[in-house]
Design a protein around this nucleic acid. Structure first.
Lengths: 367, 367
DNA sequence: CTTATTTGCACAATCGATGGTGCAAAGACT
DNA sequence: AGTCTTTGCACCATCGATTGTGCAAATAAG
């Protein structure tokens, strides 16, 4: 069989080869053949043909006809971040396990780009859209709604459709309290020793700030407004804020609540330009988990959002048809300093270790 | 305007509304109308109609007809890793700037899954495929070749089609030398003080190991075989290897060449279970860059691969038609300890810093 | 041996856009 | 006025699959 034609086989090719009609071939190959009362032997024959000719369905054709594509979209703010890339990893595994194809796209936290990106995905007839961390979830909602596309918010809530988010208030409280308690009783934190940096005017930041202020007021008796510095979600803006603070006070606050690992990178940039010793007394709480950050030379307390549960819940909720918009809270977890948690990658088996000659790899001699 | 029909407008709808034929509408909206000698005024009229009815082309239909989709694929080993997610971020920006839609998928370093994933992408008629870090690039190549799909390898080379990869030998040399020179002359590293952990039998690992051994032999005069521990690409296998070493020697080697940040996470897991003081003398070189890892409490020297250049080169090479397979080397960069580099995210503007109060969101709070 | 069922499949319309071709009307030219 | 061009657009096949419908042949029922 000279089957290595440059072009892909279609049901019409198989139809000719098998002597059956295209519709029969189609039914056999998409699994609806029993409903269509195709003989087992016919089906078997066609299946074999398909295999030897390496047939794979043209999904665009299928999608055009059925107005479904098998694509499931995830709209992220950015890829380059452990939180979001873990989300992508978890999302992808989930989608693939349902036999669909994940399509992960980022929109840079730009409302306009979010909407345009959603439009683009819709033009490919994606089946569902998970909107993660969108700056304007309701804007994206309008677009989805107009196209009759099932969608759900993750990480940042919208008002028009259900959302699955972290309990940011509780997380903010947890983290703030952990920072405060990390200081010894004989050198306790003063109210103006504890600052919050990063975040913007989004739901997550507001809730975290609310938690921060509540706990700070409870435990430290006061919370000056200037201790809240929502410097956005860019590392360099955070860095500038740290520089500015340092310029004014000659030091950093003893306790830092850093909103998101991206802003933590801003802190690193600041630190790269200043002598190490300045930070001997520093305790950082970061609302995000990153394994490397957890082992930095000062205590870093982190919040790990429960990604698995958020994704699981989101897939559960998106199936419900037209539920009243509801916000589902998922509890995040406090991670003490120097903690290396496992992540979605640990679910993958690592294979092909030796691959021939180097058979004495260390993996085989675990004690 | 009561245009909020539940279903999307098509060229046929616009055709009726405008009194023109579908083909005219199509030509106007896809830009080929000048070639078809459509009157400016007709075009203008149709464009307005399209706008008020929020027309967007059905890409599956277009793709079916033209056998192109506007989708450009990136096949990754995993998402959850700064190196690959930076690649994804850079790739995405590039693809979007060409008006196409990026589709980033991971295949877990599993050859079988790599091929099946490529098949799936092909069934969506993607226009190009960038194969990054594939365990079996040539296997994926076969699949692409059979479908007449343009493709290229990144990060790990194949033999059948061009590749853009880091100069891993040079990188390995750079990193090894930096580790060795980081030790003071009065307490120099002994040959059996410097180990390499991680990686497997792939091109990148082999080259890095080759560089490691070459420099080690040059500078330290010898390189015992047991100093090479290719423990794969899973954090827990790396951890086990560190534990095993520690069990036997009661300490870690003074110098560690860690292949990939994933294996570095294995080192963290090991460290989490051991007293901090054991690692006072440690110098780590990691073949990958992560900003947080760079600030750990021991010297961490890192290699940053030049992602922007690799992506740029890959896009350049993939356009060439049928070049003889060639491997393009891109020089990586040595990153000294405590260095916070900028990344693809810094190209994004951070917006909406104050932005009034966004509508009070969060429909109903639930526990 | 008829009539009713069931089995097994073929036919043809359809999804929405593209692009080759044809043809009438308007304008140019002699 | 008659012929030749150019302009402006409509018609229709096509991409590859899905799906409602129809209809022979095979089998069962009477």
């Amino acid at each position: 069989m000279a089957n290595s034609s440059r072009k892909k086989a279609t049901i019409y090719d198989l139809s000719v080869l098998s002597g059956s009609s295209p519709s029969t071939v189609s039914a056999v190959l998409n699994g609806t053949w029993r409903k269509r009362r195709i003989k087992e032997s016919t089906a078997e024959f066609i299946r074999n043909l398909a295999e030897t000719h390496q047939y794979t369905a043209n999904r665009q054709a299928r999608g055009l006809r059925s107005s479904r594509s098998g694509l499931v979209g995830l709209l992220l703010p950015v890829h380059d971040n452990r939180y979001f890339s873990s989300l992508a990893q978890t999302f992808e595994a989930r989608v693939r396990s349902k036999g669909q194809c994940p399509i992960v796209v980022s929109a840079s936290r730009d409302p306009e780009e979010e909407r345009k990106t959603a439009e683009t995905l819709i033009s490919y007839s994606i089946d569902e859209l998970f909107i993660c961390g969108a700056t304007d979830p309701d804007g994206v909602h309008e677009v989805c709604e107009a196209a009759g596309l099932k969608h759900i918010n993750i990480d940042l809530p919208g008002t028009k459709v259900s959302s699955v988010i972290s309990d940011n208030y509780e997380g903010g409280r947890l983290l703030t309290e952990a920072i405060i308690r990390h200081f010894p009783a004989d050198r306790p934190l003063q109210p103006d020793d504890l600052y919050l940096f990063g975040g913007r005017n989004d739901h997550a930041s507001r809730e975290r700030i609310r938690g921060f202020r509540a706990v700070k007021t409870e435990l430290l008796r006061s919370d000056p407004d200037e201790c809240i510095q929502p410097t956005g979600y860019a590392a360099d803006n955070a860095q500038k804020a740290f520089e500015a603070f340092y310029m004014r006070h000659g030091k950093l606050p003893r306790g830092l609540f850093v909103n998101s690992s991206i802003n933590f990178e801003g802190l690193l940039r600041f630190m790269a330009g200043h002598p190490h010793e300045n930070f001997a007394d520093l305790v950082v709480g970061c609302y995000d988990y990153d394994p490397f950050a957890s082992f930095l030379p000062f205590p870093v307390i982190m919040i790990r959002q429960n990604i698995e549960e958020m994704i699981a819940k989101a897939f559960e909720v998106i199936e419900e048809l037209r539920p009243p918009p509801k916000v589902h809270l998922v509890q995040p977890e406090l991670v003490p300093p120097r903690t290396a948690l496992t992540g979605p990658l640990d679910a993958l088996k690592d294979i092909d270790l030796s691959g021939g000659q180097d058979s004495d790899s260390a993996a085989s001699r675990s004690a």
